[in-house]
Design a protein around this nucleic acid. Structure first.
Length: 578
DNA sequence: TACTGGTGCGCG
DNA sequence: AAAGCGCGCACCAGTA
């Protein structure tokens, strides 16, 4: 038998157990192996440890396969996630003919958000129908879907972009599983101290913490209403009106516009009450175990391709609590975020050398001020955000036209995306992720508005919905491409970290999960920011790797276009911003 | 009792 | 009640 190493290994179920099918680079079958359920981790380990470039594991859904592998200490270098790539290719405007992919609806299934249960025979035979299937699909189904996806990419307008996107998306799926497996180091004692500092002593039994209780009393006193309900919006609104505070809502920004002795304690009450309900002691005992916070990350959970999360509010950890994120003894964090990722991505997409020059090697907003478009950093920021979000009024809306004169290429790109969306068209990110088409209700509303019998209400509503969609597509191209850049950054970094030597330091053994106790590894990712947990001795090298990966991501997406992505980067024992 | 929608606010 | 994108979550109120 010729021994060209396989480019891909597709895994799936057969009537007799699991099957792995090795394919060459052209997709031709090289070898087929039957495996007992228990033999899979060992087989994957054997292949991964072999010399030379490893294959890409092709499987239905990364969490479905990979969580169990991580639990027994098996990692893979690369995979192709059929479910995530199906969603990309099915909808991508770059794909010439997606009819076959659209017909394969079994692959449309939503992410399996729930982690696998221990008592669940994951690889056991189950009902094949998509709605009821518990285990992975048959290897035949996986091979067919993989062939469809390869065909779609090969025939696409720009195969390179889709190949990079599918590769980055799949790497992201591996990382999401690994982040959960490793967990974010979290010091419950520090968290408790922060809560006590802000809220007061934790109550015995059911009452509120001391500071919160005092604030509630002060608010009721100022309202002259000893029984006022502070947690019910309608009741609070009435109480405020009775006290002469004529607000339309009870949101903080509106309250802050009024002068009344109740305002200050009420806003403070809400701040504390929020902290208690979202990240108080209940949250701590539910989500932090053995010194680790393990949320569920959902790759591509957002239409733009950003990740979402499910449970624990992983993407909304308040800055106040970042001090509770603490490296293990002998370990350190490398904390990095990209400065002004979205406008940089916009400059590169639009091939806007002027905005790219304003961004080069420094704070982008300072560069915009220097160009004379606006006069302060704050103005530059709200003008750019307004341009990317579609602001039309207020300070932001007023400043956007000045930006349009100074950076016509970038502004033309987002304006065109908005126009396409308003007209009912679809837009794509740089690598080809494509926005969903308008809903049937949207389309109906637009055609009704052009009917001769249309009421004024029909027309007004259609216009509003069109503008709403225009702001969505305007932002989609920028937010989605920024998500792609971040995914490529992360995937490249993961590969660099995997090549780091393992240490014998056992301080973290058992806390970071079987696969990560001895090596630098990612522990957090949030849109444009990441945290690596590393043996302290490796921290400088990790920092270098993080920077190198940012440069690599810039090159992979935008080639030689002169845009850079400076990082705010620090090595520290905590994730707290200094 | 379980659901849905509104409100408010945390994150980027 | 936001002007201006994308989320998740807690809480309340109204309804089935």
């Amino acid at each position: 038998m010729t021994s060209s190493p396989p480019a891909w290994i597709v895994v799936g179920r057969s009537p007799d157990g699991l099957v792995s099918v090795a394919l060459d680079a052209d997709g031709a079958e090289i070898e087929r192996r039957s495996l007992d359920d228990d033999a899979l981790p060992g087989e994957i380990r054997r292949v991964e440890n072999a010399d030379g470039p490893g294959p890409r594991w092709v499987w239905s859904d990364t969490p479905e396969w990979y969580e169990r592998l991580l639990d027994v200490g098996v990692r893979v270098a690369r995979c192709h996630d059929l479910r995530l790539c199906h969603a990309i290719l099915r909808d991508s405007r770059l794909v010439a003919d997606a009819a076959d992919l659209r017909a394969a609806t079994a692959w449309d299934a939503a992410a399996s958000v729930e982690p696998a249960r221990d008592d669940q025979a994951l690889f056991a035979l189950e009902d094949e129908s998509p709605a009821r299937r518990v285990g992975p699909p048959s290897v035949a189904a996986a091979l067919e879907e993989f062939a469809r996806q390869r065909d779609a990419i090969r025939a696409a307008a720009d195969p390179g972009r889709l190949r990079l996107l599918c590769s980055a998306e799949s790497a992201g799926a591996l990382i999401a599983a690994e982040l959960r497996h490793a967990g974010l180091p979290w010091d419950a004692a520090v968290h408790d101290r922060i809560l006590v500092d802000i809220l007061g002593e934790r109550p015995r039994g059911t009452g509120a913490p001391a500071r919160l209780d005092e604030l509630a009393k002060r608010v009721r006193q100022e309202l002259d209403d000893p029984t006022a309900s502070l947690d019910s919006q309608p009741k609070l609104l009435q109480a405020l009106h009775r006290a002469g505070v004529m607000v339309h809502s009870t949101s903080r920004w509106e309250l802050a516009e009024h002068e009344h002795p109740v305002i200050e304690p009420l806003i403070e009450y809400r701040r504390l009450s929020r902290l208690l309900s979202a990240n108080g002691w209940n949250w701590l005992s539910e989500w932090v175990h053995d010194g680790r916070f393990r949320p569920v990350y959902v790759p591509a959970g957002v239409v733009t391709g950003r990740w979402a999360s499910s449970g624990g509010g992983a993407l909304q950890i308040p800055r106040q609590l970042r001090g509770a994120v603490r490296a293990d003894p002998g370990w350190a964090f490398v904390v990095a975020d990209v400065a002004q990722l979205e406008p940089r991505v916009l400059a590169a997409m639009a091939r806007d050398v002027d905005l790219a020059a304003a961004a080069r090697g420094r704070d982008l907003y300072a560069g915009v001020v220097e160009s004379g478009a606006v006069s302060t950093r704050q103005e530059a920021k709200i003008a750019l955000l307004g341009a990317m979000y579609g602001a039309t009024t207020g300070d932001s809306g007023r400043l956007v036209p000045r930006l349009r004169r100074t950076y016509p290429r970038s502004m033309a790109l987002v304006d065109a995306a908005a126009r396409t969306g308003e007209d009912g068209g679809v837009v794509s990110t740089w690598l080809g992720r494509t926005a969903p088409a308008p809903s049937p209700a949207w389309t109906t509303a637009q055609s009704r508005a052009s009917d001769p019998d249309a009421t004024e209400g029909d027309v007004t509503r259609a216009r509003r919905w069109a503008r709403d969609r225009g702001r969505f597509t305007r932002n989609f191209v920028v937010q989605g491409t920024a998500a792609e850049w971040a995914l490529v950054w992360l995937g490249d970094l993961r590969a660099r970290l995997a090549a780091f030597p393992r240490t014998d330091d056992r301080a973290s053994a058992g806390r970071s999960g079987a696969s990560f106790a001895h090596q630098a590894h990612l522990v957090f990712f949030l849109h444009d920011e990441l945290i690596v947990h590393t043996p302290a001795a490796d921290a400088e090298r990790v920092a270098e790797a993080v920077r190198a990966s940012a440069a690599a991501a810039a090159g992979l997406l935008f080639g030689s276009f002169p845009i850079d992505f400076p990082l705010d980067l620090r090595i520290a024992q905590t994730a707290e911003k200094s």
